[in-house]
């Protein structure tokens, strides 16, 4: 729709140092993988751990992506996000139980169809819950962080209790469908099929989100809104509507993450989402509020570190991620790729 510039811009060309500093966050991933290789020693364990780290990272990214945009767009802190993860998991697992004749059949098509239906049901359900949550819980507390924290934690508790009421207070165990069980061997390492699938789904979601954010007008509005919501309104767009859409999409993605996490752990509890929130907040913060790319890299770093350290020294796995956050914030106080202006 536009002509290329007459001549190549020279003024804005970046120096090598600038480019290094821009791509530095991306370089952290291979750096961490290389360090893992050196420290772990055994290549087969390293490969297995790397794949599970990536799988975990992708799932955390899917759960965190909506939260970071909601943070960035409206400056809303939503602790209730964890409940959408749990609700998605319970809804998805219910559908899988209901379709047990499909999931138990030795048919790839039926297995995949059951999982896709479970995901669809979970996303529609958590999207709808997210829509209601925004109207009832979040909308009255725009602009006040303290009230947001209090009331969204309240919402989290209510939704978790609702899960107890509907699905019972016990944890629920499940088996993955036939086709998603087992591993493939690669050299000496056994790579679980499901983890590889999780990596593929995570990458696909990331690519799709980037395309929407970069190539569509609604994506432009979201990115602009994260930086300067007032100006987006002053150009005639109803940012609130866009925000509600993002909130619903983010809740649906949390539901997707919940189903994926349920299939990964093969057990679900009402508190599963809440217990993920620590890692999710770490990812949102180190990625830089409002940044999808930052959350993506942050989630991969967190997933990898968690798996490497759990193998080497299980007791310090969570501490290691808090250490990672501290180190990154010392390096970049706004996170790796901040897009939100400091308010």
């Amino acid at each position: 729709m536009s002509a290329a510039p007459d001549h190549t811009p020279t003024f804005a060309r970046l120096s090598l140092a600038d480019r290094l500093s821009l791509s530095a966050p991306y370089l952290l991933v291979p750096a961490l993988v290389a360090i893992g290789f050196l420290v772990i020693g055994a290549p087969s364990s390293w490969l297995t751990l790397t794949v599970s780290g990536l799988a975990m990272g992708m799932m955390i990214f899917i759960m965190a992506s909506g939260l970071t945009l909601v943070f960035g767009l409206m400056d809303i802190i939503n602790f209730g996000h964890g409940a959408f993860i749990s609700l998605g998991a319970f809804m998805g697992v219910s559908v899988l139980f209901w379709l047990s004749s499909w999931t138990g059949a030795p048919s790839l098509v039926l297995n995949v169809a059951a999982v896709l239906l479970a995901i669809l049901a979970a996303m529609v359900f958590t999207g709808a819950i997210g829509w209601a949550f925004e109207r009832v819980i979040v909308r009255p507390v725009y602009g006040s962080h303290l009230k947001q924290i209090l009331i969204t934690v309240g919402g989290l508790i209510v939704l978790e209790q609702a899960i107890h009421v509907v699905w019972g207070a016990e944890e629920i165990y499940l088996n993955r469908p036939e086709a998603l069980r087992g591993s493939i061997t690669f050299g000496n390492s056994a790579l679980e099929r499901y983890r590889i699938l999780a990596v593929v789904i995570g990458l696909a979601i990331f690519v799709a989100m980037r395309l929407v954010l970069r190539r569509t007008k609604i994506g432009l509005i979201v990115r602009a809104g994260v930086q300067n919501g007032e100006m987006v309104e002053a150009l005639g767009y109803r940012l609130k509507l866009v925000f509600i859409g993002v909130f619903i999409a983010g809740s649906a993605l949390a539901g997707l993450g919940g189903v994926m996490w349920a299939l990964y752990e093969q057990v679900i509890t009402a508190g599963m989402g809440e217990s993920m929130m620590i890692l999710i907040f770490i990812v949102v913060i180190i990625g830089g509020l409002g940044s999808i790319e930052g959350a993506f890299i942050g989630a991969i770093l967190v997933g990898l570190l968690q798996n490497y350290v759990a193998f080497l020294e299980p007791k310090v796995a969570l501490i290691s991620n808090i250490g990672l956050m501290t180190a990154i914030l010392l390096w970049r106080p706004q996170g790796m790729m901040p897009v939100v202006k400091a308010k």
Binding site: S2, A3, A4, P5, D6, H7, P9, F11, A12
Partner: peptide
């Protein structure tokens, strides 16, 4: 604006 049309 023409020169930097495609720049951030």
């Amino acid at each position: 604006l023409r020169t930097f049309w495609r720049s951030e």
